[in-house]
Design a protein around this nucleic acid. Structure first.
Lengths: 134, 134
DNA sequence: GTTGGTGCAAAATGTTTGCACTAAT
DNA sequence: ATTAGTGCAAACATTTTGCACCAAC
């Protein structure tokens, strides 16, 4: 259970109904959502919310590390899971799923540091065909 | 040294000047390019090439596994390196670089298979700040 | 001679921006 | 009372699509 208002305040943001509802919608959805999907989830509870607000709010939630972006060939998705995990992406239908496995990325992270980067995270994306597209 | 005409023929494609020049430009660039950058590289040698052709050609080259797409928050890039390697992405300027390190992705690949996927590849993306953005 | 490929223009998509108004502090 | 945040509309950039012409086979 995250204390959103406190987190927002810490980062200099105000608490608004939109942020609370969007955060709640995203974190209880338990799957990857597009901005459109977030809007329609939220629209049920808070009429009049606009897409720009959804994007702006997801930006904020990303800064608070409550969501992560996942860029796929077909869409920009927002992932409510803050913990590290891999993703599987279907080449055919574009579907993305969480994979319950991680890997040791110390090598690539060290490699990035060697290249002068200041790494703050790493992602694994497995591509292939999903069950229904095979 | 890849025999592009032979590869194209194998996959049922015709050999055209555009495909030869675009493949050559991309593979000698030795870095990640946007479609626009490919167009301007190619434009010097083959006037009149259009952006749709660049996209179409890169699609073909991807099918031949001569290039890979890399989706970043700011752009769609085409990577001429066919071998597996990790990428570093700068959160601030969006720059992408190759990282000379790999990791064992057997776990996530197995996880994808367990989820019903037929995996055919995997990517590692390290995010952070590049030398000039720190 | 066929049919795939290209160039052009135009469309479709998804995300971002500008601005006036509202609401959180 | 301030100033961040919102909603709306409009802009924007990028990738796709449709179609007529040309070129590879």
């Amino acid at each position: 259970m995250t204390d959103l208002p406190a987190l927002l305040r810490e980062h200099g943001y105000r608490t608004t109904a939109q942020r609370v509802v969007i955060h709640d919608a995203v974190s209880t959805a338990g799957r990857h959502l597009t901005a459109e999907q977030v809007l329609s989830l939220v629209g049920e509870r808070l009429p009049g919310v606009s897409l720009p607000t959804v994007y702006a709010t997801l930006d904020v939630l990303e800064e608070l590390e409550l969501v992560r972006r996942v860029h796929t060939p077909s869409a920009l998705l927002f992932d409510p899971r803050p913990d590290d995990h891999a993703h599987a992406l279907c080449r055919s239908c574009g579907r993305v799923e969480d994979i319950e496995a991680t890997a040791d990325l110390a090598g690539p992270i060290k490699g990035a540091r060697r290249a002068g980067y200041e790494p703050d995270g790493a992602e694994i994306l497995v591509t292939g065909l999903c069950p229904s597209c095979r």
